[in-house]
Amino acid sequence: MGIYLPIAEMSVNMVVLLAMGAAVGFLSGMFGVGGGFLITPLLIFYNVPPAIAVATGANQVIASSFSGALAHFKRGTLDVKLGLVLLAGGLVGSSIGIYVFAYLRSLGQLDLMVSLLYVVLLGSIGGLMLVESVRAIQRSRGGQAPLRRSGQHNWIHKLPLKVRFRASKLFVSIIPVLGIGAAIGFLASVMGVGGGFIMVPALIYLLKVPTNVVVGTSLFQIIFVAAYTTIVHSTANQTVDVVLAFLLMVGGVAGAQYGTRVGQKLRGEQLRALLALLVLAVALRLAFDLFVRPASLYSLAGGV
């Protein structure tokens, strides 16, 4: 069934988009990630212009984050104060990101930067996750108890301007929190992702936030950063396609529910290894496009 996307100005198959949303939703429910990092590359593979894929990806992320954050809010696994500080940084980073986005687009280098950022980030995170999960699988086979190093302090805890975050049982400088927020806000606007796949490890490993509040807090602040990104992209670049976003959301919200159920049946480290392989596959596919000679060396774009 064909449907015309008013902003992307192309006809696409509605079933394909719903299925794409459902598949990503399934994976995001299974692994507890937002799925933005999969949606945007998939849209690019489906020939949606990268500028529209990114802005629409940000819009789609709001729906899945909102429904996820609601669940965490009810369970009390959400640190609103930490989320707000991350958000403050996020808005600054996102503003810079949108400026950079418009500038790269006028230079004709946006597609390249989006692909490069994806390849580098997905490649390194996928690689790290794979190594970590394979080790965990080996350890559990060997019967060893996993090593715990919580309570250890690093350079981050020596910074000034410390603030107490009660729900996270954390007393930490506000500088790295704002910094992480800003970095992820930047990525959110340039890559069209929520940034959960970077935020979660950053909060766990850098700030030592307890694992149970990490996902909820990350989702909470992603809602706002993604909402801000969507509005600014729409105002500055007119690249948000609501029809496309809506189809992806509907598929995504439905898929996520089934993904969560399957995710609960699988073991943690196996799940992480699978996710790592998936992330690496997306990175490789994007890298392939960068290095293979394109069918046509020329491309057309509207005037600036």
Binding site: A63, F66, S67, L70, V240
Partner: peptide, 23 residues
């Protein structure tokens, strides 16, 4: 374009919320 952006956000929130109620 600004109102359009706000609309897109509200639509996403509504979809997320309904999805939560349904499932």
């Amino acid at each position: 374009s600004f109102l359009y952006g706000v609309f897109a956000v509200l639509l996403a929130i509504l979809t997320g919320w309904i999805g939560r109620l349904v499932f």
